[in-house]
Nucleic acid binder design. Structure first.
Lengths: 108, 108
DNA sequence: CGATGCACCTCGTATTACAAGGGTGCATCG
DNA sequence: CGATGCACCCTTGTAATACGAGGTGCATCG
């Protein structure tokens, strides 16, 4: 559908954004992304879980197990540090956004 | 200044955008990016030249030498294939843009 | 029973972006 | 004249990234 490497470089930002809104579990995240992209993008689980691990290792998210009748789920929640990082990444994103835009507009 | 890894994933798009407007040489590109970012971002030359090599290897840009009184410069120009790739990457970018936005807004 | 969906995970690999280095030649300054 | 700085190009090594392919277990549906 779309470029498989579409999200390269933006995965952490997107994940932190999503988790900042409410606690989510892995599989749920893939469903949300699929939905938000109108079924054009499906994040591979290999990508997702290693990204979540990375975010946790860096202290930006924390996880906890939650058992439902239909099985166990590992939920992730944003930490304070993760909130700060999200802010940084958002500003960063704005910068890149403006560069991408300018690079296709003006050339001084 | 900004995150050193700021451009991760967007370098190719930015470079193709810039070169699509007019032929450019390497050093000039670093100057333009610095200017467009209001001096907050300076692409390391290692990054730039290996990116240019990559783009050339993929057939998206072509290079030619040009001699001025003050020395030789290696200019890069967009190929037809590069034009198509640029278009693809731009659509891709819009997708990611919308995901980044949505991920910090709604959660269905 | 087999397939499908939910839910998690690991491993190996190619690619990427970077820093750190190296090189040339010209101009300017002391 | 020598040093410094700028303009310009390049290579190498490394850490991190994103991915596909594979694996587990359970429940449900046909």
């Amino acid at each position: 559908m779309v470029d498989k490497e579409m999200m390269k470089g933006s995965i952490d930002l997107v994940l932190l954004s999503l988790i900042s809104q409410r606690d989510l579990y892995g599989y749920e995240i893939t469903r949300i992304l699929k939905h938000l992209s109108d079924d054009t993008y499906e994040m591979s689980e290999g990508t997702l879980y290693s990204a979540l691990k990375r975010l946790e290792r860096k202290g930006w998210i924390e996880s906890y197990w939650y058992d439902t009748e239909i099985g166990r789920r590992k939920y992730y929640r944003l930490t304070e540090k993760g909130g700060e990082e999200l802010k940084r990444k958002q500003e960063n994103w704005k910068m890149v956004e403006s560069l991408v835009q300018k690079s296709s507009e003006e050339l001084t």
